[in-house]
Design a binder for these strands. Structure first.
Length: 726
DNA sequence: AGCACGCCGACT
DNA sequence: GTCGGCGTGCTC
């Protein structure tokens, strides 16, 4: 009776395929195997095994692949993700099982050389140079030596062939040094100690030796020392002999952070991010599977590493949108981390100064524990946040800095400290119009205004990237040199600042910083080092680098984003403003934030001023419930359109009846989706909503393929309005 | 993911 | 009349 194996292949396949196990091949669930698929060979994972009397018509498994098998929790995670995100199982597997990396295979082993003592058979000037350089008898990297001697690699190769140099295989540098949980460290504050204890010991009766499974929200303002607190949980986990994973958004994964880790644990942690490739990637993966890598710090994808003995997951900056994967399998790494924690039986710490609304809801409803860090470490206080009512204290015409803000900047500069002026608008001016004819320049592809970028001398669409040179004369009426810039962007603010403080160093930081990401990084470091007096920045400056000399934050227009029509606008604006104002006050004296607004009583502004985030979120959730929306999630619409009103209505209702959405996805009936006449056709929208991060558009297309087919001139389409995403 | 089949637009 | 676009379907 042949053994039959169910093999899941990391392709967009819904089900595992059956293969016969050849005589003499012992397979277990989770084993990675090679199997024939159509005309080629692929890898797959044994998802199930059975004895079957038939099966002679099945193709055989080619053989086992010599990598660590997928652990049971990881296999269950794949199943769970596929079910939850409505993705094919094979696609979920592909997150975990990367097809063998060709780059890794091509990468050659590092080779070092040293002089053997044997003189070369032939001597040339190039050869002499190499031998001189290597005369110290020490080991030299092959390519490094060639570079040092100023010759090409082939000269070194020739000397190796000749026997004058001997080649030695280099031990690859350790990929995962062992952290020391008891490395000497600075003592924690009382509040930090208490929080750290609460992470590892949820109740006085809970045993201290076993990490407590379940999710914990670790909430603490910037500077309260969240990192030090969860480092203690990591130390606890390492002492218990288990592995820990720290997830962070890619941008937060800086040398700065790795050094902080090293200060606590004596060594840098193993780092996993998109930049690590080839052999190093494979070696780290193997070290993780073998349990040798004790602590891994990584971006989103590190969640799918094959940990052998996972004891803790930390999701730092839990609220970050970077945790969302929006192509391929749609998932949210934070939520998947909570699931993996459950499957692995280990705790999950969600750390944030500004937790997302969904995490707050989960904490409030008791699904997550909630640990708060009340204050800034070292007695530093939160910045003092005050509103500047622009209706009373507004700037003069054509200016954007109000007198109170200007005075505050002056005082700050006099004290030798940095100021940050925050305006979430790139470019010089968001709107350009002709003074003669009133023509407003808009994008030819989108419905948006073109933003003037004075530095680039161009009008740019921030929606689609379309750009045209800024015209000398109006393209409509031909009037020369009569265009006017309306409203401020960061470039314009910098201009105003330069006029007010001509002898001060001002820098503009935004994502279109000339010179690219690398130069931007360097600039950020220069700013952190204090080589600048006034920073004018977009949301780019809200997170990432610490600016230790920054004690004043001016928010130039707090009202931007409040009226965008995005249901998540209030939440996003609140978080952004909280983050950016929180940047002040890392110096000796507590910082200050001044918020220019025309709506000081708006709930978002009021919440920011009072610092009462929880109340704000509670009100947000209530407002969404009142509007019939989930507290978080997304919306899409199925659109049925037809020339005949009856046909559209009838088919729309047929679709609504046919809908058999999986749990958590709701197809709303016709009552919520009224008929509309659009361009001569009757449109019938069925709203679909879910609290999950799934590919609704893809799901609806999939579902439409099975739903009743429209007849005649009827058309059914999926319409996802980005504005309707929650 | 590959690789086939298949059905409409511009060309040797 | 063909070459070739990429939409849809299949791989145990």
């Amino acid at each position: 009776m042949p053994d039959v194996a169910e093999i899941l292949i990391p392709l967009a396949l819904d089900t595992a395929y059956s293969y016969v196990v050849p005589e003499g091949l012992a397979l277990a669930e989770g084993d990675v195997v090679q199997v024939p698929l159509g005309p080629r060979e692929t890898v797959g994972v044994v998802w199930g095994l059975s004895h079957s009397p038939g099966g002679s018509n099945l193709r055989p498994v080619t053989g086992r692949v010599a990598v660590a098998p997928l652990t049971e929790p990881l296999r269950r995670l794949v199943d769970w993700i596929a079910r939850y995100t409505l993705a094919p199982k094979g696609s979920a597997l592909a997150l975990v099982l990367r097809l063998p990396d060709e780059a890794a295979a091509r990468e050659t082993a590092r080779v070092a050389v040293r002089v053997s003592g044997k003189p070369p058979a032939r001597r040339t000037p190039a050869r002499d140079k190499v031998l001189e350089t290597a005369a110290d008898g020490a080991l030299h990297g092959k390519s490094a030596l060639a570079k040092l001697a100023g010759v090409s690699l082939s000269v070194v190769d020739g000397l190796i062939d000749d026997g004058a140099l001997e080649a030695v295989a280099v031990e690859p540098e350790p990929v995962a040094p062992v952290p020391d949980p008891d490395h000497p460290r600075v003592p924690l504050s009382e509040a930090q100690e208490a929080a750290a204890l609460a992470l590892v010991q949820p109740a006085a009766t809970a045993p201290l030796d076993a990490p407590h499974a379940g999710a914990v929200l670790l909430e603490g303002v910037t500077g309260s020392g969240k990192t030090e607190v969860y480092f203690e949980a990591v130390a606890h986990c390492v002492r218990a002999g288990r592995q820990a994973l720290i997830l962070m958004p890619e941008i937060a994964l800086t040398a700065q952070f790795l050094d902080r880790f090293a200060a606590r644990f004596g060594v840098r942690p193993a780092a996993w991010h998109s930049g690590i490739g080839g052999k190093r990637r494979e070696r780290l993966r193997a070290a993780v599977a073998a349990g040798e890598a004790r602590v891994v710090v990584g971006a989103r994808s590190a969640l799918f590493l094959p940990f052998r003995n996972l004891g803790l997951i930390v999701v730092d900056e839990e609220h970050e949108a970077a945790y969302k994967q929006e192509d391929g399998v749609h998932y949210h790494a934070r939520d998947m981390a909570v699931v993996r924690g459950r499957l692995e039986g280990c705790p999950v710490v969600l750390a944030s100064a500004t937790p997302s609304i969904e995490t707050r809801v989960n904490a409030e409803r008791g699904r997550y524990r909630h640990v708060r860090l009340p204050e800034r470490f070292g007695g530093r206080r939160l910045p003092d946040i005050q509103a500047i009512d622009m209706r009373l204290d507004g700037p003069e015409r054509g200016r954007f800095l109000s007198p109170p803000l200007i005075n505050a900047i002056k005082a700050n500069l006099a004290a030798g400290e940095q100021a940050l002026l925050f305006l979430n608008r790139r470019g010089y001016a968001p709107l350009t119009l002709c003074r003669a004819c009133g023509h407003r320049y808009r994008c030819r592809n989108c419905s948006t205004w073109l933003v003037e970028h004075r530095f680039r001398r161009a009008l740019v669409c921030h929606q689609c990237g379309y750009a045209e040179p800024r015209p000398q004369a109006c393209t409509e009426c031909g009037t020369f040199d009569n265009l006017t810039a309306c409203g401020p962007g960061v470039e314009r603010i910098a201009e105003e600042v330069a006029e007010l403080f001509p002898d001060r160093r001002v820098i503009v930081l935004s994502s279109d910083f000339p010179g690219g990401a690398e130069r931007l990084r360097m600039e950020l470091e220069a700013v952190a080092a204090g080589e600048c007096d006034i920073v004018v920045g977009t949301q780019l400056v809200a997170k990432g680098h610490n600016f230790p000399h920054l004690t004043l934050v001016g928010v130039l227009d707090a009202d931007i984003g409040l009226t965008s029509g995005d249901p998540r606008a209030a939440e996003r604006t609140f978080q952004l403003l909280q983050q950016v104002t929180g940047r002040a006050g890392r110096g000796e004296r507590p910082g200050r934030a001044l918020v220019q607004t025309y709506q000081p009583t708006h709930p978002v502004i009021a919440a920011l001023l009072s610092g009462d985030a929880e109340r704000f979120y509670a009100e947000e959730v209530m407002a969404r419930e009142a509007a019939g929306l989930p507290p978080f999630g997304r919306l899409a619409a199925l659109v049925v359109s037809a020339a005949e009103r009856e046909a559209a209505e009838a088919h729309g209702q047929a679709l609504a009846r046919a809908a058999e959405p999986p749990p958590g996805v709701m197809v709303l009936g016709p009552a919520e989706a009224p008929l509309a006449l659009v361009r001569g056709r009757y449109r019938f929208r069925l709203l679909v909503k879910t609290e999950r991060n799934i590919d609704l558009q893809g799901y609806l297309r999939h579902w439409l393929a099975r739903a009743p087919k429209p007849r005649g001139s009827l058309r059914v389409a999926v319409d996802v309005d980005p504005q309707s995403f929650l």
